[in-house]
Computed example of a mutant assay.
Amino acid sequence: MVVNKQALSQATIKRIPVYYRTVKALQQSGVKRVRSDRLSKLVHIAPATIRRDFSNFGDLGRSGYGYSVDLLAEVFGELLEVHSEEQMLLVGCGNLGRALLTNNFRRNPDLSIVMGFDTDPSLIGTTIAGIPIYNLATLSEKIRPGMHTAIVCVPSSAQAAVISKLEANGITAILTFAPKPVPAQPETTIRYIDMTSELQALLFVDHQNKLTQERKAPLKQS
Rank of each mutant, 00 (worst) to 15 (best):
H148W: 12
L100H: 09
T119Y: 09
S122R: 11
Q87W: 04
I133D: 02
I171M: 04
L90D: 06
A160D: 14
K142L: 11
H148S: 10
T138K: 11
G130Q: 08
T149E: 12
S112R: 15
L111F: 13
L96C: 07
F105E: 06
R98I: 13
P155D: 02
E167D: 10
L100I: 13
H83W: 08
A137R: 09
R107M: 04
A150W: 03
G94Y: 07
N104E: 11
L136H: 11
S156R: 12
A168Q: 09
I171Q: 02
A137C: 10
E167A: 08
G94V: 11
A150P: 03
N108T: 00
M115L: 02
L80D: 02
Q87P: 02
N108V: 08
I151C: 07
E141P: 14
C93M: 09
S164W: 08
A178W: 01
I163Q: 04
V152W: 04
I113L: 10
F177K: 07
T126C: 01
I131V: 09
S112I: 13
N103V: 10
D118N: 10
V91E: 04
I171V: 08
R144S: 10
I113K: 06
L90F: 06
G146K: 13
G92L: 01
K165F: 09
P132D: 01
P109T: 11
A178H: 01
R98Q: 15
M147H: 03
I133A: 00
T149R: 05
E81C: 06
L166Q: 01
V114R: 10
N169E: 05
V162Y: 03
V154I: 08
T126E: 07
Q159R: 04
V152E: 07
L90K: 04
L80Y: 00
M147R: 00
Q159N: 04
L79N: 01
I131G: 09
A99N: 13
Q87R: 05
G116L: 05
N95H: 04
A99F: 06
L89G: 12
N95A: 10
V91S: 01
T176R: 01
T119I: 15
